[in-house]
Protein backbone atom coordinates (compact mmCIF):
# COMPACT_ATOMS: atom_id res chain seq x y z
CA UNK A 1 0.00 0.00 0.00
CA UNK A 2 1.22 3.45 -0.87
CA UNK A 3 0.25 6.77 0.66
CA UNK A 4 -1.17 9.68 -1.27
CA UNK A 5 0.90 12.85 -0.92
CA UNK A 6 -1.31 15.23 -2.87
CA UNK A 7 -4.12 15.28 -5.42
CA UNK A 8 -4.18 18.63 -7.22
CA UNK A 9 -6.66 19.72 -9.85
CA UNK A 10 -4.59 21.48 -12.52
CA UNK A 11 -7.26 21.93 -15.20
CA UNK A 12 -11.02 21.30 -15.15
CA UNK A 13 -10.62 17.63 -16.14
CA UNK A 14 -7.02 16.92 -15.10
CA UNK A 15 -5.36 16.12 -11.79
CA UNK A 16 -1.85 15.47 -10.56
CA UNK A 17 -1.66 12.71 -7.98
CA UNK A 18 1.48 12.36 -5.85
CA UNK A 19 2.06 8.92 -4.37
CA UNK A 20 4.71 8.00 -1.83
CA UNK A 21 6.40 4.73 -2.76
CA UNK A 22 8.79 3.05 -0.31
CA UNK A 23 11.79 1.41 -2.00
CA UNK A 24 10.87 2.87 -5.33
CA UNK A 25 11.96 0.51 -8.10
CA UNK A 26 13.72 1.78 -11.22
CA UNK A 27 11.14 3.19 -13.59
CA UNK A 28 11.89 3.79 -17.26
CA UNK A 29 10.13 6.42 -19.39
CA UNK A 30 6.90 5.02 -20.81
CA UNK A 31 6.27 2.45 -18.11
CA UNK A 32 2.97 2.37 -16.28
CA UNK A 33 1.36 1.15 -13.07
CA UNK A 34 -1.98 -0.51 -12.32
CA UNK A 35 -3.83 1.25 -9.51
CA UNK A 36 -6.47 -0.43 -7.41
CA UNK A 37 -8.83 2.36 -6.52
CA UNK A 38 -11.00 0.72 -3.88
CA UNK A 39 -10.89 -2.33 -1.67
CA UNK A 40 -14.50 -3.01 -2.67
CA UNK A 41 -15.70 -4.58 -5.90
CA UNK A 42 -16.93 -1.56 -7.83
CA UNK A 43 -15.06 -0.47 -9.84
CA UNK A 44 -13.63 -3.96 -9.90
CA UNK A 45 -10.51 -3.88 -12.02
CA UNK A 46 -7.32 -1.92 -11.60
CA UNK A 47 -6.77 1.02 -13.94
CA UNK A 48 -3.55 1.62 -15.89
CA UNK A 49 -1.72 4.95 -15.52
CA UNK A 50 1.59 6.09 -16.90
CA UNK A 51 4.28 7.35 -14.54
CA UNK A 52 4.47 11.08 -15.19
CA UNK A 53 7.23 12.08 -12.78
CA UNK A 54 9.56 10.56 -10.23
CA UNK A 55 9.28 12.51 -6.98
CA UNK A 56 12.07 13.67 -4.71
CA UNK A 57 14.80 12.39 -6.95
CA UNK A 58 18.13 14.05 -6.17
CA UNK A 59 21.12 14.03 -8.51
CA UNK A 60 21.68 10.35 -7.89
CA UNK A 61 18.74 9.72 -5.59
CA UNK A 62 16.39 6.81 -6.02
CA UNK A 63 13.26 8.89 -5.67
CA UNK A 64 10.57 8.62 -3.05
CA UNK A 65 7.45 8.39 -5.06
CA UNK A 66 5.73 9.02 -8.34
CA UNK A 67 3.35 11.50 -9.80
CA UNK A 68 0.43 10.43 -11.92
CA UNK A 69 -1.26 12.85 -14.25
CA UNK A 70 -4.81 11.76 -14.93
CA UNK A 71 -7.87 12.81 -16.87
CA UNK A 72 -11.31 12.35 -15.34
CA UNK A 73 -13.17 10.05 -17.70
CA UNK A 74 -15.43 7.53 -15.99
CA UNK A 75 -16.19 5.85 -12.72
CA UNK A 76 -12.65 5.00 -11.68
CA UNK A 77 -11.02 8.33 -12.43
CA UNK A 78 -13.96 10.18 -10.86
CA UNK A 79 -13.38 8.16 -7.71
CA UNK A 80 -9.71 9.13 -7.84
CA UNK A 81 -10.57 12.81 -7.49
CA UNK A 82 -11.69 12.04 -3.91
CA UNK A 83 -8.27 10.75 -2.83
CA UNK A 84 -6.76 12.84 -0.03
CA UNK A 85 -3.27 13.01 1.49
CA UNK A 86 -2.59 9.93 3.65
CA UNK A 87 -5.23 7.84 1.89
CA UNK A 88 -3.79 4.57 0.62
CA UNK A 89 -3.77 3.06 -2.84
CA UNK A 90 -2.53 -0.29 -4.05
CA UNK A 91 0.08 -0.02 -6.84
CA UNK A 92 1.17 -2.81 -9.16
CA UNK A 93 4.23 -2.01 -11.23
CA UNK A 94 6.20 -0.64 -12.88
CA UNK A 95 4.89 -2.53 -15.91
CA UNK A 96 5.49 -2.60 -19.63
CA UNK A 97 8.40 -1.65 -21.86
CA UNK A 98 10.16 1.64 -22.55
CA UNK A 99 11.11 3.69 -25.60
CA UNK A 100 14.02 2.86 -27.91
CA UNK A 101 16.47 5.47 -29.18
CA UNK A 102 18.29 5.52 -32.53
CA UNK A 103 21.91 6.56 -32.96
CA UNK A 104 22.28 9.46 -35.33
CA UNK A 105 18.63 10.42 -35.09
CA UNK A 106 19.18 13.65 -33.23
CA UNK A 107 16.08 15.55 -34.32
CA UNK A 108 13.84 14.09 -31.64
CA UNK A 109 10.19 15.03 -32.01
CA UNK A 110 7.56 14.24 -29.43
CA UNK A 111 3.95 14.40 -30.56
CA UNK A 112 1.40 14.42 -27.74
CA UNK A 113 -2.36 14.81 -27.72
CA UNK A 114 -4.06 15.76 -24.45
CA UNK A 115 -3.47 13.20 -21.71
CA UNK A 116 -1.05 11.50 -24.13
CA UNK A 117 1.59 13.86 -22.73
CA UNK A 118 2.15 11.56 -19.74
CA UNK A 119 5.01 9.30 -20.90
CA UNK A 120 7.04 12.21 -22.22
CA UNK A 121 8.11 14.11 -19.13
CA UNK A 122 10.56 11.36 -18.16
CA UNK A 123 11.47 10.76 -21.80
CA UNK A 124 12.21 14.41 -22.63
CA UNK A 125 14.77 14.49 -19.82
CA UNK A 126 16.80 11.80 -21.60
CA UNK A 127 17.61 13.98 -24.61
CA UNK A 128 19.80 17.08 -24.87
CA UNK A 129 17.66 18.42 -27.66
CA UNK A 130 14.01 17.58 -28.16
CA UNK A 131 11.00 19.27 -29.65
CA UNK A 132 7.46 18.86 -28.28
CA UNK A 133 4.40 19.22 -30.49
CA UNK A 134 1.50 19.32 -28.08
CA UNK A 135 -2.11 19.32 -29.24
CA UNK A 136 -5.40 19.48 -27.39
CA UNK A 137 -9.04 20.26 -27.98
CA UNK A 138 -8.71 23.58 -26.19
CA UNK A 139 -6.39 25.33 -23.76
CA UNK A 140 -7.97 23.17 -21.06
CA UNK A 141 -6.61 20.02 -22.70
CA UNK A 142 -2.90 20.77 -22.47
CA UNK A 143 -2.11 19.22 -19.10
CA UNK A 144 1.44 19.59 -17.85
CA UNK A 145 2.41 22.27 -20.36
CA UNK A 146 4.00 24.36 -17.60
CA UNK A 147 6.16 21.43 -16.50
CA UNK A 148 7.54 21.07 -20.00
CA UNK A 149 8.21 24.80 -20.28
CA UNK A 150 10.47 24.44 -17.24
CA UNK A 151 12.48 21.78 -19.09
CA UNK A 152 13.50 24.53 -21.53
CA UNK A 153 12.76 22.49 -24.62
CA UNK A 154 11.25 23.67 -27.91
CA UNK A 155 7.47 23.52 -27.69
CA UNK A 156 4.81 24.08 -30.29
CA UNK A 157 1.20 24.07 -29.21
CA UNK A 158 -1.96 23.64 -31.22
CA UNK A 159 -5.62 23.46 -30.23
CA UNK A 160 -8.67 22.46 -32.22
CA UNK A 161 -10.47 25.66 -31.25
CA UNK A 162 -7.46 27.97 -31.36
CA UNK A 163 -7.75 28.93 -27.69
CA UNK A 164 -3.99 28.39 -27.30
CA UNK A 165 -1.22 28.11 -29.89
CA UNK A 166 -1.96 27.36 -33.49
CA UNK A 167 -5.54 26.52 -34.47
CA UNK A 168 -5.83 23.04 -35.91
CA UNK A 169 -4.62 19.50 -35.39
CA UNK A 170 -1.20 18.76 -34.00
CA UNK A 171 -0.56 16.42 -36.92
CA UNK A 172 -0.76 19.40 -39.29
CA UNK A 173 2.41 20.89 -37.84
CA UNK A 174 4.55 17.76 -37.95
CA UNK A 175 5.57 17.77 -41.59
CA UNK A 176 7.66 20.94 -41.55
CA UNK A 177 9.61 19.67 -38.51
CA UNK A 178 10.87 16.54 -40.21
CA UNK A 179 14.36 15.93 -41.55
CA UNK A 180 16.52 12.93 -42.41
CA UNK A 181 17.71 12.54 -38.84
CA UNK A 182 14.29 12.76 -37.21
CA UNK A 183 12.85 10.34 -34.69
CA UNK A 184 9.23 10.55 -33.58
CA UNK A 185 7.62 9.51 -30.30
CA UNK A 186 3.85 9.82 -30.10
CA UNK A 187 1.02 9.26 -27.63
CA UNK A 188 -2.57 10.47 -27.77
CA UNK A 189 -5.96 9.70 -29.29
CA UNK A 190 -6.07 6.87 -31.83
CA UNK A 191 -6.90 9.14 -34.77
CA UNK A 192 -3.85 11.25 -34.02
CA UNK A 193 -1.57 8.22 -33.70
CA UNK A 194 -2.81 6.79 -36.96
CA UNK A 195 -2.02 10.03 -38.75
CA UNK A 196 1.41 10.34 -37.15
CA UNK A 197 2.16 6.75 -38.11
CA UNK A 198 1.08 7.45 -41.67
CA UNK A 199 3.31 10.49 -41.93
CA UNK A 200 6.27 8.64 -40.43
CA UNK A 201 5.74 5.71 -42.75
CA UNK A 202 5.51 7.92 -45.82
CA UNK A 203 8.71 9.75 -44.96
CA UNK A 204 10.57 6.69 -43.67
CA UNK A 205 11.15 8.20 -40.24
CA UNK A 206 11.31 5.86 -37.25
CA UNK A 207 8.30 6.33 -35.01
CA UNK A 208 7.34 4.85 -31.67
CA UNK A 209 3.83 5.08 -30.31
CA UNK A 210 2.47 4.44 -26.82
CA UNK A 211 -0.89 2.69 -27.05
CA UNK A 212 -3.92 2.60 -24.80
CA UNK A 213 -6.15 -0.47 -24.44
CA UNK A 214 -8.46 -1.44 -21.61
CA UNK A 215 -6.64 -3.85 -19.30
CA UNK A 216 -7.54 -6.39 -16.65
CA UNK A 217 -4.31 -7.96 -15.35
CA UNK A 218 -1.58 -5.65 -16.68
CA UNK A 219 0.96 -8.50 -16.67
CA UNK A 220 0.24 -10.50 -19.80
CA UNK A 221 -1.94 -13.15 -18.18
CA UNK A 222 -5.50 -12.42 -19.33
CA UNK A 223 -4.76 -11.69 -23.02
CA UNK A 224 -7.35 -8.91 -22.83
CA UNK A 225 -5.33 -5.94 -24.12
CA UNK A 226 -4.61 -7.45 -27.53
CA UNK A 227 -3.48 -5.39 -30.48
CA UNK A 228 -2.92 -6.67 -33.99
CA UNK A 229 0.64 -6.44 -35.25
CA UNK A 230 2.06 -7.42 -38.60
CA UNK A 231 3.73 -10.78 -38.94
CA UNK A 232 7.22 -11.48 -37.77
CA UNK A 233 8.65 -12.19 -41.20
CA UNK A 234 11.46 -10.04 -42.66
CA UNK A 235 10.77 -6.43 -43.63
CA UNK A 236 10.05 -5.96 -47.33
CA UNK A 237 9.47 -2.86 -49.43
CA UNK A 238 5.81 -2.31 -50.15
CA UNK A 239 4.93 -2.03 -53.85
CA UNK A 240 2.95 1.17 -53.86
CA UNK A 241 4.89 3.55 -51.59
CA UNK A 242 8.27 1.92 -50.96
CA UNK A 243 7.74 1.89 -47.20
CA UNK A 244 8.83 -1.12 -45.20
CA UNK A 245 6.12 -3.67 -44.46
CA UNK A 246 5.86 -7.16 -43.11
CA UNK A 247 3.79 -9.89 -44.61
CA UNK A 248 0.25 -8.90 -43.61
CA UNK A 249 -0.87 -12.52 -43.86
CA UNK A 250 1.05 -13.49 -40.77
CA UNK A 251 -0.48 -10.87 -38.45
CA UNK A 252 -0.60 -11.83 -34.79
CA UNK A 253 -1.87 -10.33 -31.55
CA UNK A 254 0.47 -8.75 -29.06
CA UNK A 255 -0.40 -7.54 -25.60
CA UNK A 256 -0.22 -3.81 -24.91
CA UNK A 257 0.59 -4.43 -21.23
CA UNK A 258 3.49 -6.79 -21.75
CA UNK A 259 4.82 -6.35 -25.28
CA UNK A 260 4.02 -2.61 -25.09
CA UNK A 261 2.68 -0.10 -24.33
CA UNK A 262 5.30 1.22 -26.74
CA UNK A 263 5.40 -0.18 -30.24
CA UNK A 264 7.23 0.56 -33.44
CA UNK A 265 4.50 2.31 -35.46
CA UNK A 266 5.33 0.18 -38.51
CA UNK A 267 4.40 -2.94 -36.58
CA UNK A 268 0.78 -2.00 -35.91
CA UNK A 269 -2.10 -3.03 -38.17
CA UNK A 270 -3.65 0.45 -38.00
CA UNK A 271 -6.81 -0.51 -39.88
CA UNK A 272 -7.77 -2.82 -37.03
CA UNK A 273 -6.75 -0.78 -34.04
Amino acid sequence: MAKILYNKQILPAYYQLGIRWENLPTIEPGQFVMLRLTKYIDPLLRRPFGVYKILGQGARGKGQGIEILYKVLGKGTRLMTNLKPDDEVDILGPLGNSFSAHSGKTNVIIVAGGIGIVPFYLLAKRFKKVRLLFGGRSKDDLPGLDDFKKLKIDIEVSTDDGSRGKKGLVTEIIAKQLSGNSLIYACGPQGMLKEVARIADKTGIPCYVSLDKAMACGIGACLGCAIKVKGQGPWVKSQENKSAIRNPQSAIYKMVCKDGPIFDAREIVWEEI
Partner: peptide
Protein backbone atom coordinates in the same frame (compact mmCIF):
# COMPACT_ATOMS: atom_id res chain seq x y z
CA UNK B 1 -5.03 -16.33 -32.40
CA UNK B 2 -8.13 -15.35 -30.49
CA UNK B 3 -10.73 -12.68 -31.18
CA UNK B 4 -10.37 -9.11 -32.45
CA UNK B 5 -10.15 -6.35 -29.83
CA UNK B 6 -11.65 -4.91 -27.72
CA UNK B 7 -11.60 -8.14 -25.74
CA UNK B 8 -12.51 -6.99 -22.26
Amino acid sequence: QGNPPPRI
